[in-house]
Design a protein around this nucleic acid. Structure first.
Lengths: 337, 337
DNA sequence: ACTTGGCACTCGGGAACACAGAGTGCTAGA
DNA sequence: TCTAGCACTCTGTGTTCCCGAGTGCCAAGT
């Protein structure tokens, strides 16, 4: 149905349209890309491509524009991810290497990705639930208050102030701290609820009220799913592009964690480290935008996702290259720390 | 020069223009606001106001539009801050009361303010430099690594992982922790460098290398001025408004901490709790936008600033009311915790 | 001295119109 | 199966025209 040349025509249309942002006609195509055929032939091919739904014309006497289906075919079969230049790679590396803590890694990553792709970058914080406990700390603030600090192997720190039901002196706190750590150190976060379930019973009766309070806060901290926290950067890059769905919708989605989560998360597949691309109407919300995303994290232990969001007419090969490269470098950084 | 009626005309022009977003003419003015005078009289007054630079006309046969100077006069002398409704106050209170930690307070505040004013809200994190040390904690991660946790009286937590120059066992860490705390507890952050200056000398020689490493990280943490961290929300509200200076510039400024800091910070006066308004060209960057800001924090100890940013033709009385109210409630929340 | 009604003037924006140019589909011929 | 030619159909642009809102100014009224 679609022979080699028709595919070449489709590829040329996508490339031209992405770079010029204007509907592309048969003559321009035959000229710019050396297709070795006349415009008339191109026209025939275009008619076939339109018949199949890969391209469309905005109005009768205008050039053709790729449809979502056309972009899909382009991404799947007609293009290959474009690797970054050496200079870019080095820039990424040095920029990310300067990060001092997890917050900083995430912030730098999202800015870097936005700048690299000239699009809106989105980065999800590394997931808590797949992390393990590195340390639990109880810091006494005064005789009725302690601060619970939970440190994970990914460098994430959660802290919460706890009002105690009774006055507790330093020594008991120290003891509880030791008990908690011996119990939880190195365990996966998801197993924490099970591990602490019978803890109150194993302690002297006078400690039970205190420990119950502390545990309830600890569990609450875990439940709050801070893994759903997502940051974005590069909103200014939206100013130029015109979205079919108004700019307002996009900005609203960016500030709505839940929507953003869905957009990134929906792309999860069985191989999370693979690049996933959702084009236009393939997205649950924001039908007018495309999303290029991938998982990141150390090794086969995928921690979270990152990606970019832009108009459907984005430069997919370049964008995919940038997303993949950044994900790899962040993963390295996280694995090293 | 400007009698009572001319001021009333200016007030009417500002109010009309803010609500309609269209240049306002003499007839409409005389009709809508009961000025008890004819359009012709209004025209004379308008001519005088234009002469003085308070209003201007976009083109010859159009109505008048307030200039920055006109808005300034309006804000200073012709309007009064509009208090929020009881329902709004209650909503603020319950929404902010649900915050679990400092991060949460800031996030909720900025969203609340954006929603309330239908504009872009900006909130600076409470300043470190005016805070005091509540606790310093050293958590041993393994025999070459410790985590430094600095907790301030405002609930802020800074943490940093430290590579030690030599293997250090738990007991020495515990000792250092005690020394640090006895030295710093309750002290202002700005006095920390002085207080720890001679610390290495007061300790046994074998601890000096370790303590020097830790102190250098501690000082670095203080220097990094995390008080410059600023968050914003409500960017979607920009979509409707058209800025003289392109939308892109505004979005860029929002993501540029330094610029944002200047915009908020430049407004600092001798009475930081007062509302400050900067209109259009009064701003260092972003000449086309206005900023309504105020300090917030417990009592006379101002911690940081918050405010909103919008087009010069914003509803100043309402915006000022919202900013003032939110600042008060946040201050309460922070004082209580 | 201030206010008011009247009047001529200006200018922006919308409607109507023509037209050039790009692009197409179709058909006949190589 | 490709190509060349041709008639056709649009959009976008430039032009003209005109309406109406709004103004500035002046002379008359209070």
């Amino acid at each position: 149905m679609l022979d080699e040349r028709k595919l070449a025509v489709l590829r040329a249309i996508v490339e031209d349209y992405v770079s010029t942002h204007e509907p592309v006609g048969s003559k321009a195509l035959a000229d710019r890309h050396n297709l070795k055929v006349s415009p008339a032939t191109v026209r025939n091919d275009m008619a076939a491509l339109e018949e199949e739904g890969y391209i469309t014309q905005p109005h009768t006497s205008a050039g053709r524009v790729p449809t979502d289906k056309g972009y899909r075919l382009f991404v799947d079969r007609l293009s290959q991810v474009k690797p970054l230049s050496g200079a870019e790679r080095r820039a990424i590396e040095t920029f990310l290497a300067g990060a001092v803590d997890l917050d900083d890694v995430v912030t730098r990553t999202v800015r870097l990705l936005a700048q690299l792709t000239r699009q809106v970058a989105v980065v999800q914080y590394p997931t808590l639930t797949r992390s393990t406990v590195r340390h639990v700390e109880l810091v006494q603030l005064n005789d009725r208050r302690v601060m619970l600090v939970l440190i994970t192997n990914t460098g994430r720190v959660e802290q919460r102030v706890i009002e105690l039901p009774e006055v507790v002196e330093e020594a008991r706190i120290a003891h509880l701290r030791a008990v908690l750590n011996s119990c939880l150190d190195g365990c996966g976060l998801s197993s924490v609820p099970d591990l602490v379930a019978d803890l109150p019973e194993r302690l002297p009766a006078e400690d039970r009220a205190v420990v119950a309070t502390i545990l309830s806060v600890l569990l609450e901290t875990l439940v709050e799913r801070h893994d759903e926290k997502i940051v974005f950067a590069g909103a200014a890059n939206l100013a130029g592009a015109d979205f079919s769905t108004g700019l307002r919708d996009v900005l609203e989605a960016l500030e709505e964690q839940v929507v953003l989560m869905r957009l990134l998360g929906e792309t999860t597949s069985d191989t999370p480290s693979a690049l996933t691309v959702r084009i236009g109407s393939e997205n649950p919300y924001l039908r007018g935008t495309s999303i290029v995303a991938t998982g990141y994290g150390s090794g086969d232990n995928q921690l979270a996702r990152l990606g970019v969001l832009g108009p459907t007419r984005m430069d997919y090969p370049v964008t995919m290259g940038a997303v993949r490269a950044v994900a790899r470098y962040v993963s390295q950084i996280l694995a090293a720390s």
